[in-house]
């Protein structure tokens, strides 16, 4: 996506990275809308560099065993499971 226009091929590329299939009509509509939205995002160029000294503290806990969700409960929402495992599509 260049600064001036958003090309449908680039929408397809980003959609592939995000693992979302799109219809052709969606690609065209998104290309048009993204041009508008990215033009607004460009105005962030006017923001000065700012010192970001975040006030952060580490939060620690003892490394101890505790109860957690059992396999039966964890698998309750899986569309498919096998022998106590999640079943997914082919990796290759």
């Amino acid at each position: 996506m260049s600064d001036d226009a958003v090309n449908p091929e680039e929408v397809r590329h980003v959609a592939a990275l995000a693992r979302i299939d799109l219809e052709d009509s969606e690609v065209d509509r998104f290309a048009e809308q993204f041009a508008d939205i990215l033009a607004a995002f460009e105005t962030l160029d006017e923001v000065p560099e700012v010192d970001r000294d975040a006030d952060l503290a580490n939060v620690m806990r003892p490394d101890e065993e505790h109860d957690c969700l059992g396999p039966d409960r964890a698998l309750e929402n899986a569309p498919q499971s096998e022998d106590g495992y999640f079943k997914g599509p082919n990796v290759s």
Binding site: D21, N77, A78, P79, Q80, K87, P89, N90, V91
Partner: peptide
């Protein structure tokens, strides 16, 4: 895979997720 709408089991995992 773990929850939610499934894309089925045909093709490779990227196709199914998409």
């Amino acid at each position: 895979v773990r929850y939610g709408n499934s894309g089925g089991y045909e093709g490779n995992w990227n196709d199914a997720f998409g």
